[in-house]
Computed example of a mutant assay.
Amino acid sequence: MQTALFLLVATVAGIALGWWGARTIHATIATNCRNELAGLRRNYEDATRDNAALRTQLRQMDSALRKISTVSTETDYGEFLENRKALENVRRQYEALLEKLHQQEQTIQQFRGQLQQRKVELASLKQTLPTPMTLDVLSTTTALTPETKDDLTCIQGINSSLAGKLQALGIMTYRQVAEFTRDDFTQTQRILGLESPPPFEEWVQNARLLFQQKYTQA
């Protein structure tokens, strides 16, 4: 009997640790992907602005070229040579700007491809989110179930008033708090009108510990 109980506790602990580890790895990968996606968006916007500025300069250069190219027949030879030199300088600048514009357009295309790739990777990460931890083994050997109403005030940082508000939202168990994500905490803060954000890591760690202590004891 003791051996079976030990194996049961070890199995539950292994499931809990495996689920927590998978959830943590997934959250880290998703956060890195979002940060990289935000950086690519900023680079894309910067490249787009540079592209627009280059196009403006090209229009100005083109206008200058047309103006310099229309030399009056009454212009003397010396002024003609000066205009010709100015025209060559403008042409060189125009060609350099045109080349830079082409490079910027290629960079923008690369950013677009990278943005699309990161969006696909982020969508794939959301689809591969690990399923919540289940305690089917415990439910067959004990009368307690994971959905039993728990005392949320045992979680560090939650007083009786806050526990009542959470219960009014349907959050009544250690398991629910242990499975919270940062988005869940942000939404809870907004709904409850909390002045400061809840301590995400402390709530999750305390809730997970209390959950394991309550439902692994026999």
Rank of each mutant, 00 (worst) to 15 (best):
T31S: 07
Y77Q: 00
A38V: 12
Y44Q: 03
A38D: 15
D62L: 11
R49A: 11
A27I: 02
S69I: 07
I29N: 02
G78I: 02
L40G: 01
A47D: 02
N32G: 01
G21W: 05
E79M: 10
R66T: 06
R34H: 15
I68M: 04
T28V: 11
N43G: 13
T24C: 03
T28H: 12
G21D: 05
A30P: 00
K67E: 04
S69V: 07
T73Q: 02
I25K: 06
T31H: 09
R55Y: 04
R59D: 11
T48M: 10
D46N: 15
I25D: 05
H26S: 13
N43M: 11
E82K: 12
Y44E: 03
H26R: 10
A64M: 05
T73M: 02
T73N: 03
R34M: 13
A27Q: 06
C33R: 10
S72E: 09
L81S: 04
S72V: 06
N32H: 08
A52K: 14
T24F: 07
R66P: 00
V71C: 07
A30I: 00
L54E: 03
E82T: 10
R59W: 09
R49G: 06
N35T: 15
A22W: 01
K67D: 05
M61P: 02
D46C: 14
I29T: 03
L54P: 00
D76V: 00
I68W: 02
H26Y: 09
E82L: 09
